[in-house]
Write a protein that binds this DNA or RNA. Structure first.
Lengths: 352, 352
DNA sequence: TGGGGGAACTGTACCGGTTCAGACGCGCTC
DNA sequence: GAGCGCGTCTGAACCGGTACAGTTCCCCCA
């Protein structure tokens, strides 16, 4: 027994396939009398409605957008900043009826999601515009919005002012009298390791680069050369990198961290090593994720409005899709959201 | 200019469409010489590869599975138990190359995801088997795995032993001497409210029913009739329902909660009201989410292995899809995972 | 020299809809 | 009563591939 199809219903009712199609998809194209009859017969035959895939092919639209994520999909559910972002996107997209398909960047058994998953548009989250996955999306002509990536790429994008935020964080520490400053970040080469004053351009990931620039913007003019500890990914366990910074002769009196999660690890490591925060060590996080307020002491951090970022991303994507549906892609707008230092309890005046 | 298609490439190379298709999808079907030529021409013409949608239609498979979730998709990124679960599913599915599409249960502007999104199979998470969305999936013949739902439905499913876990939680409180016990749960009618001894069958949601049954399994034989406070959804803010339980004459000395999140709210409310946990109030959560260990005092709770649940769900779904691909659906297996009481710091002997 | 066996391609029938330019009939207007 | 407009429905082209049963051609072996 074959799956019942439009034609089955059409034959049974004695009308054309087109009419049955209209009964489901364009009710105004036929008399409501006939429509009800068709619907009834369809029900009776167990016909569920137009096959989504066939409809996609014929209509040329899929009803879903992709979200290209770094590394494993796991982070999409694990990292609080990302979950908040995705939640906001999901909410903002809901009224449009667009679904959300999460895309890992790599390939799994010769299927490469960026190439093989149908979608009307995509959000590219912290995946470099030059990467293989993004290239596929571009070549496919999928309308794209870049999140937290270099706006120079000429595509639509949403960013936050990471650099400014990082700078204010560093200035805050300087204001408190700290001169021996550490940096705990990600993307500066393999393995957790200490890096002699790094060049921001060398960092992997636009966010890493911007934040590093911001920190240096403040530190360097003040004559402060930070001690930098880096690990490959921000998602890795930061305790090793943290130890590199703290478990040494003459550790820094204050540390700037790439994220709240890494800051949390740092605080824990400091405490494990017998230090007191902020008495012996000031710590600044980044993002102001829920974690920042949960920690005790509460974490001084740089706030970004992740919810707003999600909404902006959804809006930008929606309009990018609209545009591409209409004429050719017009000017790619770029949104930049502000950041703001939030001083809480993990930073204090340098004690003597 | 039309999108370049298989045919374009075929014409240019001077071979049949089938051969070009093979060049991309079944390399062993042609000489590698010709294949490379075709690939080169394709590249030159800007042909990206087979259109995913068309391929789906022709192959009858989509390469993605759906996850039907309760309420807003937001919870998928917000609730820690759910995020853990989905993370585990994503991980377990990765090697199979299957993508993950999150499906809201309701309809958005006349598109109903459960009916309109193409998928090879679906995980139904805490959505009743009789609901509209699930019915669509069933009628479409989508291979299904029910998570945390009634196994009676004759479909494959993964559960945890909620009832047993709840019973041991209640027994624990009884062992500690508590006789005036409260219950903070969800699904017993509208609005936050106190409910006189409820019948488990009346609860909305299989999990709610099972946990309630478990609690009563222990309490009723002991002659303890709990004071039950309920709110519509477990995802709602529980502070009002918590207050209903605590801000009264003669509040309970111990409370069983539907989830760790609700337990956390309860603890906070108790503290706000000037109580001490566990001195004045013992609290038991459910799930052993990361939250449970984060809280201070750490939360006594009922542990379920959400990661294992995710893996089991992915495995069950995968095999359900395989089966349906082959012959007709065979016996629907049902997995039940254990639960275990984890005693931490929020429960204590009844202080005379 | 005849024939068996592959490897390398092709022809063609699907997959299951959407869409749009008509065709048809019918009531209304002038 | 001819013509017009409109609401309804149909035909057929199209969306962009996949898959399977051939057809060719060539090599090898008896």
């Amino acid at each position: 027994m074959r799956r019942t199809t439009l034609q089955t219903v059409a034959d049974r009712v004695g009308v054309s396939r087109a009419t049955v199609s209209n009964a489901f998809s364009r009710p105004d194209q036929l008399s409501s009398q006939l429509r009800h009859k068709i619907l009834a017969v369809a029900e009776e035959l167990g016909y569920v409605g137009p096959d989504p895939t066939a409809r996609m092919l014929a209509r040329g639209t899929t009803g879903a957008v992709g979200v290209l994520l770094p590394d494993s999909l796991r982070h999409a559910f694990t990292d609080e900043v990302l979950t908040t972002f995705l939640g906001a996107v999901a909410d903002a997209l809901a009224p449009t009826g667009l679904g959300l398909t999460l895309l890992p960047p790599g390939e799994h058994g010769d299927v490469l999601p960026a190439r093989d998953v149908p979608m009307d548009g995509a959000l590219v989250c912290a995946v470099a515009p030059g990467s293989k996955a993004v290239n596929w999306l571009v070549r496919r002509g999928v309308p794209l919005v870049l999140i937290d990536e270099d706006p120079a790429a000429g595509m639509a994008g949403v960013n936050v002012d990471d650099r400014y935020g990082a700078r204010t964080a560093a200035e805050h520490l300087l204001d408190l009298g700290h001169r021996h400053v550490g940096v705990l970040t990600a993307g500066l080469g393999p393995g957790p390791r200490l890096v002699g004053l790094p060049r921001p351009e060398d960092a992997v990931g636009h966010t890493s680069r911007q934040r590093l620039k911001g920190w240096l913007d403040a530190l360097v003019p003040a004559g402060v050369s930070p001690l930098v500890s880096s690990q490959p990914s921000a998602y890795d366990d930061a305790s090793v990198a943290a130890r590199l910074l703290l478990d040494i002769e003459d550790p820094p009196s204050a540390v700037l961290c790439f994220s709240d999660a890494m800051a949390a690890e740092l605080v824990r490591t400091a405490v494990d090593l017998g230090g007191r925060v902020p008495a012996d060590l000031s710590v600044v996080g980044f993002d102001d994720s829920p974690l920042a307020s949960r920690l005790r002491p509460t974490l001084t951090t740089v706030r970004q409005d992740v919810d707003a970022k999600g909404r902006a991303a959804a809006a930008a994507l929606h309009s990018a899709i609209e545009r591409s549906h209409a004429g050719h892609p017009v000017a790619a707008e770029h949104v930049q959201l502000p950041t703001e230092l939030v001083v809480r309890q993990t930073t204090a005046l340098l004690s003597a």
